[in-house]
């Protein structure tokens, strides 16, 4: 474990807690894409298949349970909670996320480190995570005004993967044979997808104006 990865995990944790807090306290999911939340639940479900078979550390197991629990409860809140679901804008959240799932699954079947079920599922979760934010970014473009909790959520989500890239660089230089191109490239693509959002987020923060994304 290194400081970059720990900071990345804490940032990731903060992003899901910010979202849960927003939905649980103000009972609203305005501006939140259910599609992105469902994709994230699928990412964690396919990545943590080894949850009960490989014990790595208490930290690792605990964090996996938190990410699984929070992502599925966020989906539950938006889908079934009688108050929250009313604020879900399904007419705007129209990204066909199945168009993301299938290509990622095909790519995972073609490009992976080992052609086993677990490894293909794990690789699928990496590719899917890289693009899972797209429905949310599209929704933000459409609804234009971003309440600051949603803005913080997307920012933290992007920042965690950027910190992971520093972690991979650190591990590459400190651990022999630590080379994982699939992880690195999908992590880089993921971070680049946030790049324009980061730009507008910092602009609004610097000029102290409400975050607006260009249409």
């Amino acid at each position: 474990m290194n400081i970059f990865r720990f900071a990345g995990d804490m940032t990731h944790l903060a992003s899901v807690l910010v979202l849960l807090l927003k939905i649980h306290t103000i009972k609203s999911c305005a501006g939140i894409s259910l599609k992105t939340q469902e994709l994230y639940a699928l990412v964690f479900a396919t990545r943590y298949l080894d949850l009960f078979t490989d014990y790595i550390s208490l930290y690792n197991t605990l964090m996996k349970l938190i990410f699984l629990g929070s992502s599925f409860s966020i989906v539950w809140y938006i889908r079934y909670h009688k108050i929250v679901r009313r604020s879900y804008d399904k007419d705007q959240d129209t990204f066909r996320h199945y168009f993301l799932v299938l290509p990622c699954l095909l790519l995972a079947l073609l490009i992976n480190e080992k052609f086993t079920f677990r490894e293909v599922m794990w690789t699928f979760s990496l590719y899917l995570e890289a693009v899972a934010i797209l429905p949310q970014l599209v929704l933000l473009q459409r609804t234009r005004n971003i309440d600051n909790l949603t803005g913080q959520y997307v920012f933290l989500l992007g920042a965690y993967r950027a910190l992971y890239i520093l972690n991979w660089i650190y591990r590459y230089f400190t651990e022999p044979h630590y080379v994982h191109w699939i992880t690195w490239i999908s992590g880089l693509v993921q971070t680049l997808l946030y790049a324009d959002f980061f730009y507008y987020y910092f602009q609004s923060w610097k000029n102290n104006v409400k975050l607006e994304l260009p249409a």
Binding site: I56, F67, H177
Partner: peptide, 10 residues
Amino acid sequence: YQTRATKDEL
């Protein structure tokens, strides 16, 4: 060992 190293990240 290799797979163990890969999968120690979240």
